[in-house]
Design a protein around this nucleic acid. Structure first.
Length: 540
DNA sequence: CGCGTTTGACCCGCGC
DNA sequence: GCGCGGGTCAAACGCG
């Protein structure tokens, strides 16, 4: 079962203890407040719709609440009796005192009927609220990404303005910036590139009603300079394509440390640092390890395979995919099975979408964007910070899940690896009990494709923490799951992070805040880590 | 016929 | 300079 190590469920458990008393007339109110609890929802669903899964139900009932067990008509009446009358004591009690069996049977049936009715109402309400939440979540994700991009732009505006004024190629930069402003982009494109260009930074906020994107002119320039060869000529040469090339040839970007320094060689170290940071941003990768027999995890996007290679040290080939939802979308991903355990699917994402995404794809988009932003924010001060485990993200994630989320220091690109492969029967019991993400990943209906949304939001929260680190925010992380408003959840999550450096707690809060939406998606997936292929984009 | 996959060739960066 | 490995291209091929 899914249970946060943090005391998120503490108050909830108490509330349930209140609820399990049949005479408690206020339990309905508590239930409504608790509708966003995944645990409750799951228990309710299972007891209503999945009676045949006795074994599972027993486990859930035992772990969650004995009250629900009494609701199951398929169960022995005595169980319900015990639950109704003795649930404040040991929840394992099955002893029948043998007194007034008929009376208690009737009482039990009445209680069952009442509870059943209650559950029906709750289910309807839950459905309604869930729809609302998913809608709000989508809106929230969009707005959140916009906000982060705008903040990033504002952050860099000052420094970029300063160094732009000192740059000889100032006029040229303005020219390019004007060019960029004339090419509106979807707000979805916020990635690292969004607003990360010093030239764009000069554009006033009034001019930028939308988030713009594009490779930094230095990148474009250097890229084009190097790309005078046949490769660039052989392909479409739209501005997006140039941008795409900058993305699509990440291996060329490192060179721009030198080439860009040629372009912007004004002796200003900031330029180089910033360019390096941008290059870093572009190369930032998010790697997801998940157990799946499917050839590819479904992330809501459409992919086209453009290559396959045998990687050294791995008998399984590595497949290269490119996003085909837009003509020049720079996002690419690699799919490869783990050499040690071929049931583990390693999916590595790179880049940011420059086109609108369906809600299902928002998850991965927010993850890659957030991860890239996180990596950049961690590397802005120093390159060492990026690779150093004391990096903010590393410090935040590693303590609670050293094997779940790691930042690769050896890879040529900064990579966040999310390891969702630890089985519930794994070697590290602490991992399964104390790690929110692992528990999330181990849920029976877990869909690996959903996790990025969780992590993405969590990363955003963490990122914003760094930006709001100076703010004094109220500390009430435990209230996050109970909030019915997504925005409140965001505020609470931000507050949680700001007040508590323990990222695990904040991550748990973030997970919980969107758990409802995630579970909603999970309802349509099978009960293992295999990914549903309803959108038919699982090709290969 | 169009679209996606396959696969060998090619390019590039990096280490020796 | 050379070889290796990762990444990409593009012609050939398959499928609906």
């Amino acid at each position: 079962m899914f249970r946060f190590p943090v005391s998120l469920g503490g108050s909830r458990d108490e509330a349930r203890h209140d609820q399990i008393t049949p005479l408690d007339e206020h339990r309905v109110v508590v239930d409504e407040v608790d509708f966003f609890s995944e645990k409750r929802d799951r228990v309710s669903r299972e007891n209503i719709n999945d009676d045949e899964d006795e074994e599972t139900n027993k486990v859930h009932v035992k772990m969650e609440n004995s009250r629900v067990e009494g609701n199951d008509r398929s169960r022995d009446v005595n169980i319900g009796l015990n639950l109704l009358t003795a649930n404040t004591g040991s929840d394992e009690s099955t002893v029948d005192d043998g007194l007034s069996m008929d009376m208690e049977d009737k009482r039990a049936k009445i209680e069952n009927a009442q509870l059943q009715e209650e559950l029906k109402k709750m289910k309807i309400e839950n459905h309604r609220l869930r729809d609302m939440l998913s809608q709000a979540t989508n809106n929230f994700n969009s707005l959140q990404m916009q906000l982060v991009a705008v903040m990033r732009q504002q952050e860099q505006r000052n420094s970029s303005q300063e160094h732009l004024l000192a740059t000889e190629g100032k006029a040229e930069g303005r020219k390019r910036q004007e060019l960029h402003t004339m090419v509106p982009r979807q707000f979805m494109d916020l990635g690292p590139s969004s607003g990360a260009t010093e030239h764009e930074a000069e554009v006033s906020s009034e001019e930028r009603t939308m988030i713009h994107s594009g490779s930094p002119p230095s990148l474009l320039e250097s890229s084009n300079l190097r790309e005078n060869g046949k490769r660039l000529l052989g392909r479409e040469e739209s501005p997006e394509e140039s941008e795409s090339n900058a993305w699509g040839n990440p291996n060329k970007v490192p060179k721009h440390n030198s080439s860009s320094s040629n372009n912007n060689n004004n002796g200003n170290g900031n330029v180089i640092d910033q360019s390096a940071a941008e290059a870093t941003m572009r190369k930032a990768r998010v790697s997801v390890r998940a157990r799946s027999e499917a050839p590819m995890i479904s992330d809501g996007c459409q992919w086209r395979k453009y290559g396959q290679k045998m990687a050294k040290g791995n008998p399984c080939p590595r497949a290269y995919y490119r996003c085909t939802m837009a003509g020049a979308c720079p996002v690419r991903k690699q799919v490869q099975r783990c050499a040690e355990d071929r049931s583990i699917l390693i999916t590595t994402y790179e880049g940011n979408h420059n086109h609108p995404l369906p809600p299902a794809a928002m998850a991965m988009a927010s993850t890659t964007t957030a991860a890239a932003s996180m990596l950049l924010s961690g590397s802005m001060s120093s390159q060492d910070g990026l690779m150093n485990p004391t990096n903010l993200l590393a410090r935040a994630i590693l303590p609670c899940s050293s094997s779940m989320a790691t930042i690769s220091a050896s890879a040529p690109f900064p990579t966040i690896t999310l390891d969702l492969t630890n089985s519930p029967n794994g070697n590290n019991p602490n991992m399964t009990t104390n790690n929110p993400l692992m528990q999330f990943a181990q849920r029976p209906g877990f869909n690996p494709a959903v996790l990025p949304q969780v992590v993405g939001q969590a990363l955003y929260y963490n990122q914003q923490q760094s930006k709001f680190s100076g703010l004094q925010l109220p500390a009430q992380p435990l209230q996050i799951p109970a909030t019915s408003s997504v925005s409140e959840s965001v505020s609470a999550a931000s507050a949680a992070i700001a007040s508590d450096p323990n990222f695990a707690a904040a991550l748990a809060a973030a997970i919980t805040s969107i758990m409802n939406g995630s579970s909603h998606q999970n309802n349509n997936t099978n009960n293992n880590n295999n990914v549903a292929t309803s959108n038919g984009d699982n090709r290969q």
